[in-house]
Simulated assay, not measured.
Amino acid sequence: MATYINTSGLELDVFPNNGEKFTLKELQKLVDGYIERIAMPNGQAMYINEEGKLNDLPWNSKATTILKLHGLIPNDYIVGDVVILSNEEED
């Protein structure tokens, strides 16, 4: 089970179509574009829209806070919808 977080802070549990691992297309659909993977020290990864800032997507405060709490992106921020999943759910 992965967690989808949209820019308004709504969190939803999401599952891969095959029940085990997310495909590239599934991740791209969740973030609405090309993906960028951010490894987190707790064995999870956050997938974000790679072109989110170029496309002027809205700020995602919840995703930004999560990464900052893990000591990541100290001088940056996240935009657009994101999905957080465990390494076992990655294709």
Rank of each mutant, 00 (worst) to 15 (best):
L69H: 12
G52R: 03
N6M: 15
Q44S: 12
E50V: 01
T7D: 07
Y4N: 10
T3F: 05
A63P: 02
A45V: 09
P16K: 09
T23R: 08
G52H: 06
E50G: 06
L69K: 10
E88L: 12
N55H: 12
P41C: 07
T3H: 06
V14E: 06
E89I: 06
S86I: 05
G80R: 09
F22E: 07
M46E: 01
L57A: 04
T23V: 12
T23P: 10
Q44F: 07
D56L: 12
L85I: 10
M40N: 10
T65F: 02
G52P: 02
Y4A: 02
N18L: 11
E36D: 09
K68M: 01
A39H: 06
G19C: 13
I35K: 01
G9I: 07
G43Q: 15
A39S: 09
P16H: 13
N60V: 02
N18E: 08
S61H: 00
V14H: 08
N18Y: 12
G19P: 14
Q44I: 00
E89F: 11
Q44M: 10
A63R: 00
S86V: 01
N42I: 13
A45E: 10
L30D: 01
T65A: 05
T64K: 00
P74V: 00
N87T: 11
L85S: 02
N49I: 07
V82S: 08
P41D: 07
E90W: 11
L10P: 00
Y77D: 11
Q28M: 15
M40R: 15
L85A: 05
K29S: 15
L24R: 15
R37C: 15
T65G: 00
A45T: 04
G80I: 02
L30W: 06
D76R: 13
N75F: 10
G19T: 12
R37P: 15
Y34F: 13
L72G: 03
I78E: 03
A39V: 08
S61Q: 07
I84E: 03
L10C: 00
K21I: 11
A45L: 05
E20K: 15
A45D: 01
Y77Q: 12
S61M: 04
R37I: 15
E20W: 13
N6D: 15
Q28L: 10
K62I: 12
P74N: 02
